[in-house]
Simulated scan of single mutants.
Amino acid sequence: MTDRLLDERRDVVVVTGAGGMGTAIARRLGSGRTLFLAEASRGQLDRAVAALTSEGYAVHGVPTDVSDRASVEKLAEEAAGAGRLAAVVHTAGVSAATASARTILEVNLVGTVHVIDAFAKTATRGTSLVVISSMAGHFASLSREDEAALATAAAEDLLGLDAVAAVGDDATTAYMVSKRANHVRVEAAALAWNRRGATINTVSPGVISTAMSQAVAESPNGEHMLRMIDECGAGRTGTPGEIAEAVAFLTGPQARFVAGTDLLVDGGQAAWMRRHMRR
């Protein structure tokens, strides 16, 4: 990023993850703002930054591994130094179709806590943080005691919790637990963010047309997933643009009274699973 762009002191938007959802959200929120795009894959980051720059966005790519606390803290400090932090949207994550249980827990679970903790230090009045979770988090089987521990344990203690250790090598269960942990972590963090005049929420997408969902569709569970989309009545997958619109709402002035909650954007699939799906 040039010094000129930094000197303009525009509002700052941070997006972690340069995949389909991340880039759609960056496009939706980034106009007229300084955009920080964070991604672990340097190649993917460079391609996304080049595309956004060619479209006129003032974008700064920051190689970031969300599972590494120091990496996330560096990102938060750089973003806070560039202007008023308007929004942080955490989309970085991995799926059960592409990663091991251990990696899922390190990225989706611990990485999300690193993002919440790091940006809590730099959030100011009007800052909004949105964590992209998943519809899958609504179907994790956890006790109230397990959820309380996931909501409050220090990042370095999370992998040792009973509910996390019980996951073993089951990547699907790891994904569901990590995404439910996102929900309860945000609920627990909402009080501190409210006291700063800031907001924190989650968005839980259903099946969205991204490279990650394509990998899931091609996995052994893919046929079942696609059949449920039809049976719930939606008849299609969602688009990254629809997630971007939900995030725009939660980070905009019309949602200042929305805090510590989850917004399902799944075409009604979760409702169908709860009320209509044959067990």
Rank of each mutant, 00 (worst) to 15 (best):
D11A: 15
V13F: 03
M21S: 06
M21T: 11
G22W: 02
T23H: 03
G30Q: 08
S31D: 14
R33L: 13
L35H: 02
F36Y: 15
F36V: 08
E39W: 07
S41T: 09
R42K: 11
R42S: 15
G43C: 10
L45W: 03
A51E: 15
L52Q: 00
G56L: 05
V62L: 05
D65L: 09
L75I: 08
E77M: 10
A80R: 04
G81P: 02
A82I: 08
R84F: 09
L85M: 14
T91C: 15
A92T: 10
G93P: 01
A97W: 04
A97Y: 00
N108C: 11
V110M: 09
I116W: 00
A118Y: 04
F119T: 01
T122Y: 12
G126N: 10
G126S: 06
T127V: 14
V130S: 02
V130M: 03
V130A: 03
V131C: 08
V131G: 00
I132W: 01
S133N: 09
S133R: 09
G137T: 12
L142S: 01
S143H: 08
S143R: 03
E145C: 07
D146K: 02
D146S: 15
D146E: 15
E147G: 04
E147C: 07
A148Q: 11
L150W: 02
A153D: 13
A154C: 02
A155S: 15
L158E: 08
L158P: 03
G160C: 10
G160M: 09
G160W: 08
A163S: 11
A165W: 05
A166H: 07
A166D: 05
V167S: 02
V167A: 03
V167R: 00
D169N: 08
T172G: 15
K179C: 06
R180M: 11
H183W: 10
A188D: 02
A188Y: 01
N194R: 15
N194D: 14
R195T: 13
R195L: 14
T199I: 10
N201G: 01
T202H: 02
I208E: 06
T210D: 01
A217Q: 06
A217R: 10
E218W: 07
N221L: 15
G222I: 07
M225E: 06
M228I: 14
M228G: 09
E231K: 14
G233W: 08
G233K: 08
R236T: 04
G241I: 01
G241A: 13
I243Q: 05
A244H: 01
A244G: 00
E245A: 07
E245G: 06
A246F: 01
A248E: 09
G252Q: 03
R256K: 14
R256Y: 10
T261R: 06
T261E: 07
D262R: 10
L263C: 07
Q269R: 14
Q269F: 14
W272R: 03
W272I: 06
R279L: 13
